[in-house]
């Protein structure tokens, strides 16, 4: 597994853990509370901390395990990254349209913010997952 493939796996794990935790916290806060009264804003900022910590520790570990390959990349990594970004771009576009309709339907800010956030997170997850598939299957 190349360094970039391992890096992608680390970012997928960090995203899944951090935003899985975020989702559980928001569900807990929203339990029995109207959407416009859910205090989700601090969580949006706080979730960045575990995301960065997990990603940093993960990258330190994969770099330490094979220092000579740390941060190495080449044309295959760039091609795989490009194809992954295309998939992520589609999801961001769909989320943007969903957000547009949510705004036109005058949904609460809570839902609009979470449509945007879900779009961004799902795009990153799809991007990373597709990259790992391509690393394994070939391009």
């Amino acid at each position: 597994m190349s360094f970039q493939a391992k890096s992608t796996a680390v970012m997928l794990a960090a995203l899944t853990i951090a935003y899985g935790w975020y989702g559980l916290q928001v569900i807990r806060l929203a339990d029995g509370v109207p959407a416009d009264q859910v205090e989700y804003q601090p969580l949006v900022l706080i979730v960045v901390v575990p995301l960065v910590v997990i990603a940093t520790i993960g990258h330190i570990i994969i770099s330490a395990l094979n220092p000579s390959e740390a941060d190495s990349h080449d044309e295959r990594d760039r091609e795989i990254a490009r194809r992954g970004s295309v998939v992520g771009g589609w999801i961001v576009s769909v989320a943007a349209l969903g957000t547009l309709f949510a705004a036109m339907a005058e949904l609460d800010h809570f839902w609009i913010a979470h449509l945007v956030l879900a779009g961004l997170v799902l795009a990153e997850l799809a991007d990373g997952t597709w990259r790992l598939v391509l690393y394994r299957r070939g391009v």
């Binding site: 190349s2 190495s72 044309e75 295959r76 070939g138």
Partner: peptide
Amino acid sequence: GVTRQTVNAIEQ
């Protein structure tokens, strides 16, 4: 000037 994994992928 590529990674070992890329040479392996090309060979396969």
